[in-house]
Write a protein that binds this DNA or RNA. Structure first.
Lengths: 200, 200
DNA sequence: TCCCGTAAAATCGTATATGATTTGAGATAT
DNA sequence: ATATCTCAAATCATATACGATTTTACGGGA
């Protein structure tokens, strides 16, 4: 009925806790306690951690164990850079086939963002920001790039809580840039122009 | 002395066999025989497969097992697209700090490629091609993007053997494009121009 | 013939147990 | 006071064993 292996359960729990910031970077992931908490043996937990290791969310050392990946100061910036790159590409790929409906939905989200500027909530704003872009790039035909975009957002979610930084004025610019992207899409502007606009 | 866990050994073996084409796409990875062959139990093999799963090289189904990831016809193209994107970006990032030495080395590699055009060997050519680009992008400061470039090349290595396709005339163009990239780098051309040139 | 149900084989999933490695605390010598 | 050695505790790594699930083969009935 569950249709979920214990490895998978363990993976989701750990992943969720990293995302939520409950396991902060540097936190040591000891097998036994986690297994105990989940009511399973350590074997599935190990497998879950292997997956997280392959995804770069945790680091590993032989006979020592795993810990939540440390993020250098530059890490955040690198992630942003990468995400900008792939998301820009994804958006540009979608551009030719974008529908009126998509544009309208994105515009609505952006409008909500504009309104939320009044009593500013960073978390909420980020959520809406993701939603805005999602509407545009989810139709991207290249599954690889789409996957990279998702990974980028996930990674960002982890980082934001630990090394938080948000330039206040940035939010206003952001909304304006969204308007610009929508305008370019509606006008069927050249792909390159759209890609560069979406990079921000 | 080994300093290598059995999981790691298993990972490398399977990975190597997928890369080399010995395990073709669709091949079913049954735990017991692999474990037997390596002289270990199935547990480390399972962990290795989890990692490969997270990397997208194998697919997995509960209580059924793993098989080497199937590649659709479009997969190859998508990988190429993605690789072009990230490699272009990586090259552009390196551009400002590229050294004379790097340019000279890259030029030498390209010269060898030009010579190899006479008695054409696709495998050899691809190898040189990777070497050419490696010289240029290995210094990329953004480790994320660098990692994506590596993944892209690995993936490509897997795909090439299964769904092989090589347009003969493409090789000549390629060498010419390399010349162009080197020229732009030497001239300290705008980053965007370099990025777009490197995308091919 | 074709479909379905049943049972056996193959394979995976996980718990437990044991050995190996690393870490850390305390004692001892300098 | 510091460095080093020793030993115990913590933790990981893996093998083995057993249970669960899926697949496959086979035989009876429509």
């Amino acid at each position: 009925m569950a249709a979920l292996s214990k490895s998978e359960q363990a993976y989701r729990l750990i992943r969720e806790r990293i995302d939520s910031g409950r396991y902060v970077p540097g936190f040591r992931l000891v097998l036994a306690p986690i297994a105990g908490e989940l009511g399973m043996s350590v074997v599935p937990v190990r497998e879950a951690i292997r997956r997280l290791e392959a995804e770069g969310l945790v680091t590993f050392e032989l006979n020592v164990g795993a810990q939540v990946a440390l993020v250098e100061e530059t890490e955040y910036q690198h992630t942003m850079e990468t995400l900008a790159l792939v998301e820009g590409a994804a958006t540009a790929m979608v551009a030719p086939d974008v529908t009126e409906d998509q544009l309208a939905r994105a515009a609505r989200v952006n409008e909500r963002m504009r309104q939320s500027l009044a009593n500013f909530d960073p978390h909420r704003f980020t959520e809406l920001n993701l939603e805005f872009h999602s509407v545009l790039f989810e139709a991207c035909p290249n599954t690889h790039i789409l996957d990279l975009v998702h990974r980028g957002w996930n990674r960002l979610k982890v980082l934001r809580d630990s090394s938080f930084s948000f330039v206040p004025g940035r939010a206003h610019e952001s909304v304006a840039e969204h308007d610009e992207i929508l305008r370019l899409l509606a006008d069927r502007a050249p792909a390159l122009e759209i890609e560069l606009a979406a990079r921000n």
